[in-house]
Design a protein around this nucleic acid. Structure first.
Lengths: 288, 288
DNA sequence: GGCGATTTTTCACCTGGCGAAATCACCCAT
DNA sequence: ATGGGTGATTTCGCCAGGTGAAAAATCGCC
């Protein structure tokens, strides 16, 4: 199976039935309203019988489920469980939270904290402004990094290897409902972002969601987390300079703290972080 | 493989390698901080070599990932994607949202909307009160139904078959970090809830999270969604009667609307729902 | 209530997965 | 430096187990 007629399962080879099962899961994920076994088989390019075996196995384990009346297959109750476990790993650095809160209180906007996992930018913390009307995502929301400001920031401050992998994964394959990135354009955009110290999103993904994002930079020069301000067109255009100043003050302060405690904050360090966040914002003559 | 020496893969049999792969995923989910291949093998009861094959396959598909420095395996970036697809199916009935909002505005508390998926109660909508300090979950949060008030409501208004399945699944097996339900106790509790029309949680899961939950009942007498008020001990004890009245007014009104449009609200029906929600609350002489 | 379409199950063949054993990578003591 | 030990990773022969064509059951429609 490795090459032409070599039988054994060599390194780099994947287990056929498992790969197929995962493809089936992807097919189910692509059609939230449920699929017939036949539809799944067609979408996954498998025999009906094989599809049944896979679907039965997935269903027995709770990864798929079947509506008793419509007989349609869909993703099962195990998925939120997996997600919770994933999120537990994706928790933000504790010392960062006070900074995020400070940013929210100062600007009154929705603020998010995002991290990169593989090619995905994941929202790991979110404080929604009371007047937020456009959907600003939720904790655990994830999408290809280059599509949001915070994701572009994370890409810009990730290692070069990371970016290469990203482009390799996106370009051509174009799996998923999103357009593949245009590599040269993206690379140019990212170096501009790196030079400027922040990224913006002027309603590109949603007409009334405008964002500013900046990284929390580690001593190594890389960034694991990015903070973003999410607001609407009017507020963005009115207050852009102020919002940017607040964002950068907070992320710089957070970067400084990240440098000292290396992300493993103890409780006293966290309260110190609160002070620093407040101090950083006082410099701006903004209400803290 | 079906019984003793019958070779073929019969109905009801599961594909071994796929089952094993899913077990491995569960193992990864159980240890968010990552696992060595060896640890996964031990936890899943598999050979190291087999575990490598499975892990490689999962990683190639993005369901698992491997930290380049620590070499530890963990859940991969595909998980949030799956979850998003799951949530798309779990969206609340559109006509219910205005009722939820009305409840939030009237009481000023955190409110949630939950649905049952398999044995899991999933938070499908959430409006957090500004003064909420204890963690009230997030959209997509899920746990065994009997552990939260909204889940008990859903169980109480689900078909009897559903409850039987639930108990069968929980009793004995006790998979997961939660204690298995005590069936007789739970059945008694559920019939009490059904008789009373609502369920409560007086700090059972978290000392300062107190809840009231009530179902949105369909004409068939079953409930697909439940609404809950989440607040703290003080507020709960001070305003219990008022909060309960508001909750029941809103859920009854929502049930009436659900009866007419069968859950598929068009936009005009949604605005009508808003009116009804307001009307229901006016009856209580509460500020809407 | 019979006929075609669709869903579900069966089972023989032989591919593809399993896992014991070999190999490789790394670390520390000499 | 160098060997020996410990742990991580890969190989490959055997045959368990997965695949899918075809049979059986079930459903929907006139």
């Amino acid at each position: 199976m490795a090459k032409s007629n070599a039988h054994p399962l060599a390194t780099g080879d994947r287990i056929q039935s498992v790969s197929r099962a995962l493809t089936v899961l992807d097919m189910l994920a692509a059609t939230p309203d449920g699929q017939t076994a036949k539809g799944v088989a067609a979408a996954a390019g498998l025999t009906l019988a094989t599809t049944y075996h896979l679907l039965n196995t997935l269903t027995a384990a709770g990864y798929a489920s079947r509506d008793p009346v419509s007989r349609l297959f869909a993703l099962g109750p195990r998925i939120p469980h997996l997600h919770q476990a994933f999120l537990a790993r994706a928790r933000p650095t504790p010392s960062t939270i006070p900074f995020l809160r400070a940013l929210h209180q100062t600007t009154g906007t929705t603020v998010v904290l995002a991290r990169l996992f593989g090619d995905e930018a994941v929202t790991v913390e979110l404080i929604v402004a009371p007047d937020q009307d456009a959907p600003a995502g939720y904790i655990g929301y994830s999408l290809p990094a280059h599509l949001i400001a915070a994701g572009r920031v994370l890409l810009a401050w990730a290692g070069v290897g990371r970016l290469a992998t990203y482009l390799a994964g996106r370009y051509g394959h174009s799996a998923g409902p999103y357009p593949p990135a245009d590599p040269p354009r993206l690379v140019a955009e990212l170096s501009r972002i790196r030079a400027g110290g922040f990224a913006d999103d002027r309603g590109e993904s949603h007409p009334d969601i405008w964002c500013l994002a900046a990284p929390i930079v580690l001593p190594s020069g890389e960034a694991r987390e990015a903070m973003a301000i999410v607001t609407n067109r009017d507020r963005f255009l009115r207050d852009e300079a102020t919002l940017r100043a607040a964002l950068l003050a907070v992320t710089h302060a957070a970067s400084a703290v990240a440098a000292t405690n290396n992300g493993n904050a103890s409780l006293p360090e966290t309260s110190r972080a609160r002070e620093l966040a407040a101090a950083a914002l006082r410099v701006l003559d903004l209400p803290a």
